[in-house]
Design a protein around this nucleic acid. Structure first.
Length: 887
DNA sequence: GGGGGAAGGATTC
DNA sequence: TCACGGAATCCTTCCCCC
């Protein structure tokens, strides 16, 4: 029993020698060392558990197989044959697809730059994980994805070099320059791999004179780090062939390449080697799947071609082990092996049975493999679908540290998102506990987000729920990650640009109303602000414009809807109770008062409310101005007044003005973030305010006090049984959407949608530019103000504010914004909370929320056929081409 | 019943 | 001595809601 158990686990922890340079090793000896090193560890136990689950899946598979009848097989066989015939009919062998893979890339770069490593077994990575190893190390069983400490057991002399991705990227760029000469639209897979379609290149190449196919041979190459004369390639492997055609001792100076696909690829590899002194291997085939297999065939520094003939392809595929095919990993391999399938020919033989045991997507995949088919079209246009960051660490059980890390991850992710101009709606928290059990918890927001605060608002609640789930025990983590997905489409990548255009357009046409763009609608399809986490959307009453016309709710912007609703409520309020602001304060939600961490987080996210340092804003304004002045040579100069810094910006295009506005709006956010880990509280807020005018400070303190006392009576507290109930609170707590940029921006945008901008010429004072004066002020803010004249009008409630202090004004607007949230919140429990309580009702014994879906799922359900093939990016994509279009 | 979100898992480099 | 990554994509299943 022990023995069979050990054999079984071997498929998970044992050496995977499915890699070049690892044939003929003493696997038993290597595996013994690996097992001895791993055994008893939590990782090992986790692998054992996974192994048991795979075995259970296999048992089910076999039980299901045993029940399959002859008739079912016959019917399935007919279906398989029909589909196969169809695939054959549409098979396209006309493309020449090349897969190029750099040999032991990271290791080769390090060896090139540090010749003393050449003769040593070395690997790139760390004691916890290796990225790759050189061919000397592979002979000891040391390979990529192996922990360094195990590698050290296998090969005590192993030199582990820390990775230098900057360097690898630079080399990769050089390699890609060569690729581009053969296929300008090549598809990079990673730093060291790419697919190329050289069909067009080959056509042109036929007409090239020899001179264009002749390349100089550089005998000596040195780089900065290299001082000694070098042969072209670093020694990867003693018996490694060289792609360099140089015959030692001859005077050969040039190499002439032919016009065939093989020659073109050889030339490409030669040029890569000349340029980088690194070797590459390549596969040439009629489709991507085969090209990928081929590039591994003659590794290192070799190439292999499958001729574009059906018989050649089928002969090649017949003997191909299924594990060699990209996409078939250790689990699939094991399941197929249980069915007696090792090679692709066996795959063909058993296809009818497979079609009954696996999903349609999966068996179609198998069928295409067995026919040697794959995608003949290299898809370069696929867009990124998610972005994430995660970190592994020594056991972490302290909630403060966990929240702090969570925020850090959100910060990093936000930076990455903003760098790529992406916004996503689904925030996923990934946790791995010390037993290597992985959990993911996701939440989809109403609006696409990209700021640290917005992401953290969601991630924090997901984390809180998990912490609560195990209370009073600590959550013992070894990994945490945050992912964002459900990106809005490309057009929405710069929504602010679009918004500002609409915003400025209104300035010249103050009576028109801006309809939200398609992108805006998609970003907030239900026209909710990011603050509305967990809120259900409710139909808004029709928006009545100033002119009396109506717009359909779905065409209204958030502010239009909010305003419509507010007007309605206000009307009701005025008839029944007192000023609207009283209502605001009474409705404000509270944070958890018992959880100090939560409190800290709450205050942390409050930092956006702090007033900007005047020097900072001034310098930002200056820089914006100077940037604007650079455009003065343009014929199309326009002058806009920044609604934040109130400086007049001369610019020839809206983009630069928008950029200026963005900077003004979010300028000091990051500085605040880095000022500490977020423990700031009301006191700190006051400290920051201390430099402000005393009257304003009093006013602010007065408001904060009011908010605190009001929040204690929040109806939200009643819903706090569920950890998800509070999923909305982090944003509410701060009195507004957690990122000041968007709301503030939207405030102005909204203001314009409501015909508020005064044309520049009409403004005698730039500080009073923004909004029409309308009605009376909001008392709480205005009462402590001095005699300054203000013309700021709240874009939400449309009330003129007796202040020209933007901090206070912003604060007021946030109050107004919150009102919308709060009104909804008092009307309904968030759906997440509802589902959570339903979950709890349904299965009170279930502790982990996520378990509900997978309860009892350890024995997986019997395989069944799926009805439809996904039309999205699927496994089919890899095999897509003319051949499978009918699938 | 189907669509879609959530969760877990497989796979790749 | 202890010790097994990070990022992305796709697939499958479960479940809720329309």
């Amino acid at each position: 029993m022990e023995s069979s158990g050990q054999d079984s686990i071997l498929s998970r922890v044992a050496l995977n020698d499915n890699k070049a340079g690892m044939q003929g090793l003493d696997k038993d000896k290597i595996n013994k060392i690996i097992l001895e090193t791993s055994k008893g560890s939590r990782f090992y136990e986790s692998e054992l558990k996974k192994e048991r689950q795979v075995n259970q899946r296999i048992e089910k598979l076999m039980r299901y197989k045993a029940k399959v009848t002859e008739q079912q097989i016959e019917k399935a066989q007919a279906e398989v044959e029909m589909l196969a015939a169809d695939l054959e009919r549409n098979c396209d062998l006309g493309r020449v697809i090349v897969h190029v893979d750099m040999d032991a890339f990271y290791a080769a770069v390090e060896m090139r730059d540090c010749p003393e490593l050449k003769e040593k077994p070395m690997a790139v990575g760390s004691m916890s994980m290796l990225s790759t190893s050189n061919y000397h190390a592979r002979r000891y069983g040391v390979r990529a994805a192996m922990p360094g400490f195990i590698a050290k057991k296998l090969c005590p002399d192993l030199v582990i070099v820390p990775p230098n991705f900057g360097k690898y990227r630079a080399v990769s760029e050089q390699v890609r320059e060569v690729f581009a000469d053969y296929d300008p639209n090549f598809l990079p897979v990673s730093l060291d791999e790419a697919y190329l379609d050289i069909t067009e290149h080959l056509q042109q190449r036929q007409h090239w004179p020899e001179s264009m196919r002749t390349h100089q041979i550089c005998e000596v190459k040195t780089t900065g780090e290299m001082n000694e004369p070098e042969t072209l390639s670093p020694v990867l492997f003693e018996d490694s062939p060289s792609s360099s055609p140089v015959v030692p001792g001859t005077d050969q100076k040039v190499e002439v390449f032919g016009t065939s696909p093989e020659e073109a690829v050889r030339e490409m590899r030669f040029r890569i080697e000349q340029k980088t002194r690194l070797t590459a291997s390549a596969g040439i085939a009629p489709n991507m799947m085969l090209a990928k297999v081929c590039s591994d065939k003659n590794k290192p520094n070799g190439q292999y071609r499958i001729l574009p003939e059906r018989k050649v392809v089928m002969d090649f595929v017949q003997e191909l082990p299924v594990r060699k095919v990209s996409g078939i990993g250790k689990v699939t391999e094991k399941m197929l092996a249980a069915l007696g399938i090792i090679s692709c020919s066996q795959l063909t033989q058993q296809m009818a049975m497979l079609s009954l045991l696996f999903s349609e997507t999966t068996w179609h995949h198998f069928l295409q493999i067995s026919l040697g088919m794959g995608s003949t079209h290299i898809d370069r246009d696929s867009e990124r679908k998610s972005m994430s960051t995660e970190r592994t660490f020594a056991e972490m059980s302290n909630v403060h540290e966990q929240y702090s890390l969570c925020r850090e991850l959100c910060h990093d992710l936000a930076k990455d998102l903003q760098r790529e101009g992406l916004k996503g709606k689904t925030v996923t928290l990934k946790l791995k506990n010390v037993n290597f059990e992985v959990k993911t918890r996701a939440f989809t927001l109403q609006c696409a987000v990209c700021s640290e605060h917005e992401i953290f608002a969601a991630a924090k609640e997901l984390l809180k729920a998990e912490i609560d789930n195990v209370t009073p025990l600590p959550l013992r983590l070894r990994l945490m990650g945050v992912r964002i997905s459900s990106f809005v489409n490309t057009d929405d990548k710069q929504p602010q640009q679009k918004s500002i255009k609409g915003f400025l357009k209104i300035a010249s046409d103050s009576n028109s109303s801006v309809q939200p763009s398609k992108s805006e609608q998609e970003q907030c399809p239900k026209t909710k602000s990011p603050a509305f986490i967990g809120q259900t959307s409710k139909p808004f009453s029709k928006w009545r414009t100033e002119s009396g016309s109506t717009a359909e709710p779905q065409q209204q912007t958030f502010f239009q809807k909010a305003h419509a609703k507010r007007l309605q409520k206000q009307h009701e309020q005025e008839e029944t109770s007192g000023p609207y602001t009283d209502k605001i304060l009474k409705c404000l939600p509270t944070a958890s008062t018992n959880n100090s961490v939560d409190k800290a987080e709450e205050n942390q996210t409050c930092t956006w409310m702090k007033p900007p340092h005047k020097d900072e804003s001034a310098s930002k304004a200056d820089s914006s101005l100077s940037r604007g002045s650079k455009t003065q040579s343009s014929n199309m100069l326009q002058c806009f007044t920044c609604p934040v810094c109130f400086n007049q910006i001369e610019t020839e295009n809206l983009t630069s003005f928008n950029q200026h506005l963005d900077e003004c709006l979010c300028g000091d956010l990051d500085n605040k973030r880095t000022s500490g880990d977020g423990g700031q509280d009301v006191c700190e807020e006051e400290n920051l305010l201390s430099k402000q005018d005393e009257a304003i400070k009093d006013c602010f303190r007065h408001k904060v006090t009011d908010l605190s006392s009001a929040s204690r009576n929040s109806p939200l507290k009643r819903n706090n049984e569920s950890p998800y109930t509070s999923s909305s609170t982090p944003v509410f707590k701060n009195g507004a959407p957690s990122d000041c940029r968007t709301p503030f921006f939207k405030q102005f945008k909204s203001a314009n949608e409501k015909r508020s901008l005064v044309p520049r010429e009409d403004r005698s004072d730039s500080r009073s530019m923004a909004f029409h004066k309308t009605a009376s002020s909001v008392e709480v803010i205005s009462e402590s103000l001095d005699t300054k004249v203000s013309t700021l009008t709240c874009p939400v409630c449309n009330q003129v504010q007796d202040t020209d202090d933007l901090v206070l004004f912003n604060h007021h607007v946030d109050m107004c914004l919150n009102q919308e949230v709060l009104l909804e919140f008092t009307e309904a429990v968030p759906p997440l909370a509802q589902s959570e309580s339903k979950d709890k009702d349904r299965d009170k014994s279930s502790t982990a929320r996520g378990k509900s879906k997978r309860r009892g799922s350890s024995p997986p359900p019997p395989p069944k056929k799926t009805k439809a093939i996904s039309t999205r990016h699927t496994i089919d994509q890899f095999f897509r081409g003319t051949s499978n279009q009918k699938l």
